[in-house]
């Protein structure tokens, strides 16, 4: 199936992750122009190195959920964005009953409140164009967290709700949203953990394997395409059946 797109400009938040870079490559092949955000110099270099063969077909921009003002620098007056893919997520692995309220509050401020600021900013641009498609990359951990993932899950669920309502409110104006909950992927911050327990994890997944970044990126690209415009304000689980049963 050849995917068709209604827009061209895509913003990938958290663009230095492997999934973001893989997705950007697919976007370029599909004729889109991705802007990948990074939050530090290491992230920028990672993008530039990986994207070297397609130099000129994308751009980068600084953005950090911990720095709410950075959203303002993402957009110059008149900039257009028709697609947003949001991989950005801070990490806080902590037992719920652990001490330390400051970092927990800060975590929610960054990963929920500041994200909301970005979403509102982007949504207004999209509203002006009467078109926009946003994909929030959540996680099956949002609904099936492991020990220590309570804050991560809570932030993901809160962000899912924001995205969902955005699609509900602006769907009639051409701005729609999809929330994707991937399961175990052999990439990202859980890579070491997953690789160390790959056999046990695969036993739990009905399709008996991990997801690979390419198939997740292809799924996201599909959700941005015209073919998927009927999906709005909803969560899609991509986990090989992991969370379907006990």
């Amino acid at each position: 199936m050849k995917l068709e797109f209604s827009g061209k400009h895509a913003l990938i938040l958290g663009g230095s992750c492997e999934l973001g870079i893989t997705l950007a490559g697919l976007m370029i092949k599909a004729g889109l122009f991705p802007v990948l955000t990074f939050r530090n110099e290491a992230g920028r270099k990672k993008i530039v190195t990986a994207m070297e063969p397609v130099d000129g077909s994308y751009s980068t921009a600084f953005f950090d959920l911990a720095d709410p003002d950075s959203v303002d620098s993402l957009f110059q007056s008149g900039d257009s964005v028709e697609y947003l893919v949001d991989f950005a997520q801070g990490d806080l692995e902590r037992l719920v009953a652990s001490h330390g309220s400051t970092d927990k509050g800060k975590y929610f401020e960054e990963n929920v409140a500041n994200r909301t600021k970005v979403i509102a900013h982007v949504a207004r641009i999209m509203l002006g164009n009467q078109f926009g498609r946003l994909v929030f990359v959540s996680s099956t951990a949002a609904v099936r967290p492991n020990h220590g993932q309570g804050f991560y899950a809570a932030a993901k669920l809160a962000s899912e709700a924001i995205y969902k309502n955005l699609g509900l409110e602006l769907g009639g104006r051409g701005v729609t949203t999809v929330i994707l909950r991937p399961g175990y992927i052999d990439t990202g911050r859980a890579k070491k953990f997953i690789q160390s327990k790959e056999k046990e994890i695969c036993e739990r997944v009905p399709i008996k394997r991990l997801l690979v970044s390419g198939e997740v990126a292809e799924t996201i690209l599909f959700f941005l395409s015209k073919s998927a415009e009927g999906f709005n304000a909803t969560e899609i689980t991509l986990d090989g059946g992991l969370t379907a049963g006990k």
Binding site: R124, L127, G128
Partner: peptide
């Protein structure tokens, strides 16, 4: 929702900055 759209449209139409 109309007021939200109106704010965006006014901003664009009058290039308010």
């Amino acid at each position: 929702i109309d007021l939200l759209e109106l704010a965006v449209a006014l901003n664009t139409a009058f290039k308010s900055g």
